[in-house]
Nucleic acid binder design. Sequence first.
DNA 1: CTGAAAGCGCTTACAG
DNA 2: CTGAAAGCGCTTACAG
Lengths: 329, 329
Amino acid sequence: MNLITIKDIAKLAGVSYSTVSKALNGDPRIKPATKQKVLAIAEKHQYRKNILAQQLSTGRSNIIGFVLGELSNPLFSNISGKLHAELKKRGYQMILVVAHDGVDVFSQLRVDGCILWDNALDYQDAFWKKFSALTMPCFVLGTDESLSSPYIKVDRKEGIFKAVEYLNSLGHTRIGFIGNSQNIKLEGYKEALQRTGLNFEEDYVLPAHSSWEDGYFAIRNYSFGVNAPTAFIGLNNLVTRGALRGLLEAGYNVPRDISLIGYDDLPDMQYAEVALSTIGPELDELAVQAAELIVSLIRDEVVDYPIVIQPKLIHRSSTAVYRGELFDE
Amino acid sequence: MNLITIKDIAKLAGVSYSTVSKALNGDPRIKPATKQKVLAIAEKHQYRKNILAQQLSTGRSNIIGFVLGELSNPLFSNISGKLHAELKKRGYQMILVVAHDGVDVFSQLRVDGCILWDNALDYQDAFWKKFSALTMPCFVLGTDESLSSPYIKVDRKEGIFKAVEYLNSLGHTRIGFIGNSQNIKLEGYKEALQRTGLNFEEDYVLPAHSSWEDGYFAIRNYSFGVNAPTAFIGLNNLVTRGALRGLLEAGYNVPRDISLIGYDDLPDMQYAEVALSTIGPELDELAVQAAELIVSLIRDEVVDYPIVIQPKLIHRSSTAVYRGELFDE
DNA sequence: CTGAAAGCGCTTACAG
DNA sequence: CTGAAAGCGCTTACAG
């Protein structure tokens, strides 16, 4: 643990330690020769700046916190990885905290800023209040609400609309939705039907929370009678993959009998038994936007908000033209 | 940003700030009444200890670093999540860093300890050297090597042996291995064949690195002629799932025609088209052991090592008795 | 039971 | 171009 400090270097170099500090930080006022000497000594002794001390002194940590509700959904590890990479490019470390108590952690750790993934809000209002009381730059990523502070919105309603419109353009008129745990998507679904001139049937919304099993059982427990949907939209990547398995096991051919499109575009989706068509935000873009926004906020720059990310439709093999046989009267 | 400090509280409470510090830290020498007053004021003004200052002062950060090679393999997000939870139970924050430069980050951040997932070692020797030069408690998780400092070993060879033995007990004598990027597993495979009295055929090792696609194409590019394997072991979760898809698309029935068992036990494995039999360490156990070890090391306790984790075989639907028809001469 | 003081390793006006 | 000094917000012997 006996690491070399700025004072040791000062002694070795025969200068004051404030000079060492400046040389190390590239202060232009330091004479090149002095700088050289200091850097050489630092290098030789493997000097490592004590970030803690620097942070205490400057009041900044160069760490950005990312609050997530959970890690079990592949979407989150994917986003975390990309965000981590983008932040690093900009000189920041990212630390990940699994929601709920995330805010408390950050108010203690004094990160420079933090990003909250919207899903964490599903659970606790109190959480959101604490969050907005934070005295550091922070914003919500992927929210649907309109907030009075900067945020990045994912236009999920519009995404669902694109999916409905697309399925309708393939001739489907009975389009179901698998999953009832995210209001905004359900609303988007209803509005999309309306905009497309289709009827909403209570019966077309299959109950499913968010897991693979939920999607699977939603389908297995559904009775496909006359006028059953010929196309489904899945709430998220897990639900959709579970539903696909359910449909195949129930003996339906996807997409010949039933079309399926899933929310969230992850690698897993294209590797499903039937490569899944998807709708969802482009995750690379999401990460870039998030990284840039938090950096701007930390720098106290003026930012326009909301930043809106439009989900993209990706056509693969799980959606096809309506054949007008199955389930018709 | 104008957070209240220990000095403000001292002024408010009419005591010295060292007294405040002690009261806040539950020092028993402080009179209960004083302590009450201090705590009340702290509470009232939402005092938050500046962890940075505390860390600088005590030299400890209560943060543990976890170095990973990548985040794209679901195995890693799974382990990260579990480890995070276990560390939190023990009063530590975990920060995740994507390998390669992980060590540098930690030597700067001065975490209290760090854990390195073995895979990161596949790529750089230099990395390992830096790692072992770290002046903080640290250990390698999931290694196969014998090290001179504490480590947690996953006995992959024994795991592969169990898989081979199991397949052999089902009557399979031609057992292939999909994946050639991890020497230890290949060695385990060869040794297992030997121990089981089976022949090793160069041709039974299908080249595949580590991704889903690698597994898929390994199978699609393989020519299943006479004496082809009737059972395969997949290198990891992704390769195995890719291989399963490959087999199914090639028209084989799994497990009737060909049995498949995959390394890594993750939820995804049981949700594959055919619920995959697996071999692999129990991840909850892995996380618990890792958390306990790092905490012990930080506390300078004597620990026995290596800690060895034995992979477990889980039988699901992708493995069945050899029928002796396909590929036989 | 409490307080004055030194110290953790940096940064940064300020003076020279 | 360089240095002395104060300060970031805590903890912790040490003295009383």
